[in-house]
Design a protein around this nucleic acid. Sequence first.
DNA 1: ACGCTGCATGGACCT
DNA 2: GGTCCATGCAGCGTC
Length: 854
Amino acid sequence: MGTKICMNASCQTSTTHEWKRGWPLRSGGHALLCYNCGSAFEDSLFCDTFHSEEPGWRECNICSKRLHCGCIASKFLLELMDYGGVGCTSCARSSRLHSMQSDEIPNGFGSLTRNNAGDLESIPVENTVAGNSNDEGGLAQLCRLIEANEPSLLHPSERANGNGCLGQLRQEEIMHAIGDISTGFSNMTQPSVGSSKFAKPDNMSSLLDMRDIHSSLSQPSLSMALGAPSGATNFAPFPAGPVEGREQGKTPSFQQGQRSRPILPKPSKPGLSASSENNKGAASELRIARPPAEGRGKNQLLPRYWPRITDQELQQLSGDLNSNIVPLFEKILSASDAGRIGRLVLPKACAEAYFPPISQSEGIPLRIQDIKGREWTFQFRFWPNNNSRMYVLEGVTPCIHSMQLKAGDTITFSRIDPGGKLVMGFRKSTNNNEDTQDAQASGLPDGTASGETSFSADGDIGWNNNENHGGRINGDLLQQITAPTEKKRTRNIGPKSKRLLMHSEDAMELRLTWEEAQDLIRPPPSVKPTIVTIEDHEFEEYDEPPVFGKRTIFTSRSSGGQEQWAQCDDCSKWRKLPVDALLPPKWTCSENAWDSSRCTCSAPEEMTSKDLDNLLRVSKEFKKRRILESQKQFHECEPSGLDALASAAVLGDNLDDSGEPSIGATTKHPRHRPGCTCIVCIQPPSGKGKHKPTCTCNVCMTVKRRFKTLMLRKKKRQSEREAEISLKDNMDCKEESEVNDTMIHEVLHINNSEIEGNQSKKQTEKPETSAGQIDLNCHPNREDMSLDIPGLGTMNLVDTANSPLDSYIKQNGLSSLVWDQHGGPAQHSGESLRRLSDEAFLASIGWTHESRRD
DNA sequence: ACGCTGCATGGACCT
DNA sequence: GGTCCATGCAGCGTC
């Protein structure tokens, strides 16, 4: 991080690695303080936000000089200015009490003076504040100065946490701040410099407490915007309503400060939209998640529930109602919240903080006014849940309907003070069609729109809302949020912004199909396989996991031969390779052992750029089409792979045979409750030799049905694949003409080799040819994975699905069984085969034919 | 059969 | 590992 020099003139410690952790920075991390005296290092006074994002430059109301960056400290100051106008240093000085000169600030900015160069210096704190800890440095005293000048401007909690630190001010800003403070407070009443409170060094040593002041400072604009008539009590950011009132009796109000909270939900998350602040300027227009009013209870409210109401909205509201609106919390409606049940799950912390306390599960009726002034009565109650409580509002359906809310919309709860009346508003999800109106009505009893549309989409800093991120990502996200059926998927994606979102078309570019992945798998380099024979099939076993090889493109020439093309990782030129070449993940021209004339990057490319473009374009289109097809298949067809296995386990064969009565499906399945009739549970313990072919027990019937269905599906698929292959061939022929005379058709290798998923089939049917073509896993799309029947080997299962019935029987050595039944190598008709297949299959898995033995 | 109610469950998130 | 909360579902009441 380089050498840091302490700003304390009497210290000036220079260090490269020793420092203390200071106040949290809005953009994450902490300021660094001198380990020796606790003062700030030079560059610690720079605001990270300022340097990285420049979110909040503002102009002086008078001279238009640009001020501050919007970091925690300056925001506080500026918002104070917002109350009475923003002022820069010079303007402030002209209007400010001239008596308030920096050298006259006895216990505050006496520690901050300008040196000869005009820069700020920090002088030892002990020089100015008796008994004060050095830890805070001079900046901490800035807060005290503020308080000294206008105690009523601070929330009692802020006064209680009088050790505030306006840390990230850089030198110039500090001077601005001083001036701003002067200006801002000059409009206020009774500057009481040097009050007893001011001199009192209470709570001044704890850096932890410093965060409190940061939190508190982060939200003063809210109350300011409410236009409190006058006096300190009205200026408190969240005037205590009845709820708090109960506790106020217990706790002195000055101790009821805002709890320690980060200024924004998470440093990284607000950053998503922080840049949008750039041109906004006025903080009052930003939809920033605010730490809500101090409520009852000790639980912190999760940032996702912080109300995001703008100062403008609040101002308007307050004006409309002639009273203070205290935003309490908000919640994005879930599917069940907006559903027919009519129960709105309340966040526990919110319910306990802002709603009346309830001791009985039945709860109490709660009257809440909606945006149109109508009053609704809900049952506010709870259920015991895991040694905790789950709070719900019951009977919300009519209200939800009247507001035309649905899952994904946000419902807000506010309180009108005085009186403590609860008000609920809403905010529509911005991806709704009606978003253009987007009548944000956060608690507006008269339904007055408040200009939400203009900034809801880009000014919102909350990370758990559906309005962040612009463009496609936003669209996708919103779509997911408002689609309850997609909820499970969106949960992971939407709220947290932790995952990279990508539009589907873009994602398609990067998407690797299973077939492609299969074909890219290479044996681990320089590891010799062990050859293992399982059921007459030879397998290569590797001790090391496979690696992905280099992706190549295959082309076919009109002469019939195939070519493989690979791109050099160094020069990006395409080189022609033999079809059977398997490349490592990284490959360069120098490794081109097949063409000595092109084994260096300097060698020219064989293909013209036009050819190459065509090649790539066709490959890309082909892939897109292929992915779309696979998606279509996925949606239209049966569940596959593990899904099928799970479904089959749950549903027996109803998956395939919908005509059969359903075995009661239950999501509790894996536990196999008593009475479960799934394929797993109905297995006899031994599983073998106890069932006659005519047996109609549950097990036998299920197994029979399963095998029948399997075969039918297999046949159907086979015919579909054949049809598809012919279709593909036709399409490929069309494409060929587009590319080049010499390139008859071209497809990705992976497409070429197993367009219809036949590759894995071939590999399993003819494993002896699979040497060099590693299939380390069977295709997850294979429906026969659902056949998890004891006694049947994995390879048999694979073959079962992929082979015609007769070959299956042969491969499993069951032909003798057929002979037995018919007294010789009968010429089986399809019908007889089908008739026999049940028994054959039963035999293969161990259900022997006792009747035969008889 | 249908709807309501209260609880259980498990994934997601937080500490 | 603990907590929260969205949702599933069994049991019960009502039609």
